[in-house]
Computed example of a mutant assay.
Amino acid sequence: MYVPPAFREDDPVELRHIMRAARLSTLVTATADGLMATPLPLFLDESEGEHGVLHGHLARANPQWALPVHGEALVVFSGPDAYVTPSWYPAKREHGKVVPTWNYVAVHAYGRPEFFDDATRLLEVVTRLTNLHEQPRAEPWSVTDAPEAFIKAQLKGIVGLRLPITRIDGKRKMSQNRNADDRDGVAEGLLASDAASDHAVSRLIPRHR
């Protein structure tokens, strides 16, 4: 990922926050059959390794896990994003030398994926993923709510993924390359939008007032 210095995000705490907030990521691998990509919910265990380890699972019928991976795999996490119109820049009224752009947050995590089908490990991964996303609910569903034999049968249809992260690229492109007045104009313009995602981007733009 191309990351100009003004947009680089290196803070480990922020990187982990972006990865967790993304909820759904994309696993990309290079194989003899070409590039393969699968959208996946993953969880990050930061207690393992320098950058943490990603855990999740794929459908057993998905050929991505069975094909040898050339080099590292890439996991893409996308955060809030929004279109930025030049009309929000005071600079447009001053000289007109402005163009549209896009503000966004992204993290690219790299590592060599490990696939497994051990039933005990699979159950742990499924349980942790379920608990993570059920926790906010008033009445969380638990894996143990389903019959044990049913869960065992379901586990046979998936393959586990463990990906120790070897390096991370983080990017937070939030109009940092514009002057303070232009940044305020973008933030206010996004805040006036009807889209909740635009409001999320507005809150991330550095303001001077």
Rank of each mutant, 00 (worst) to 15 (best):
P5C: 04
P5L: 08
P5V: 07
P5S: 14
P5R: 15
A6R: 14
R8W: 00
R8G: 01
R8N: 07
R8L: 11
R8C: 12
E9I: 02
D10N: 13
D10H: 10
E14V: 04
L15N: 08
R16L: 07
R16M: 05
R16S: 14
R16V: 06
H17I: 03
I18N: 00
I18H: 02
M19T: 13
M19Q: 05
R20E: 12
R20K: 11
R20Q: 08
A21R: 13
A21Y: 03
R23M: 00
R23W: 01
R23Y: 02
R23A: 00
L24R: 04
L24V: 15
L24K: 04
T26Q: 13
L27A: 11
V28Y: 00
T29S: 08
T29K: 00
T29F: 06
A30V: 02
A30Q: 11
T31P: 13
T31W: 14
A32D: 15
A32T: 08
A32M: 05
D33F: 03
D33C: 13
G34M: 08
G34S: 12
G34V: 00
G34T: 08
L35Q: 03
L35H: 02
L35D: 06
M36E: 05
M36L: 13
M36F: 14
A37S: 15
A37R: 04
T38C: 07
P39C: 08
P39L: 11
L40C: 08
P41N: 11
P41L: 04
L42T: 00
L42Y: 02
F43K: 04
L44W: 08
L44Y: 12
D45M: 05
E46V: 15
E46H: 12
E46A: 15
E46P: 01
E48P: 03
E48F: 06
G49H: 11
E50D: 14
E50M: 15
E50C: 06
H51R: 14
G52L: 14
G52T: 13
V53Q: 05
L54V: 08
L54S: 09
L54E: 10
L54R: 11
L54N: 01
L54K: 10
H55A: 04
H55G: 07
H55R: 09
G56K: 00
G56I: 10
G56V: 05
G56P: 02
